[in-house]
């Protein structure tokens, strides 16, 4: 199991236990868990609807690629802890990640 702590836009915190081996990114996984992330671009790092702030586990994440950084630059509320959930692959390495969702909801 991969454990991820998620705080939604309303401040509600849930500890998710996600089975390993799911071939999804974190945005898709959160949508599967019924988080109402709008995801306009569908996961191309172009819209920033899945913008999240990493509270714990930053070091577990692979470095952001150029497109993700460009898109984050268009967010007025981005910080040095910002990532796009669609660019985070679900993998054992991110076990223990804690995030806060701050992008647009449906």
């Amino acid at each position: 199991m991969i454990h991820i702590k998620v705080e939604d836009n309303k401040g509600e915190v849930q500890n998710l236990e996600i089975p390993e081996g799911i071939n999804l990114n974190l945005m898709e996984t959160l949508k599967a868990y019924e988080y109402p992330i709008r995801a306009t671009c569908g996961g191309m790092a172009l819209c920033s609807d899945c913008h999240c702030e990493v509270l714990e586990g930053w070091e577990k994440l692979p470095e952001a690629q150029e497109q993700e950084l460009i898109t984050l630059d268009s967010r007025p509320d981005a910080s040095s802890a910002s990532r796009l959930a669609c660019q985070i692959k679900l993998a054992d390495e991110i076990n223990g990640l804690s995030i806060r969702l701050i992008g647009e909801s449906e």
Partner: peptide, 9 residues
């Protein structure tokens, strides 16, 4: 005013 110290455009 820009939050970063580089521009990626």
């Amino acid at each position: 005013v820009h939050r970063g110290d580089t521009f990626r455009g």
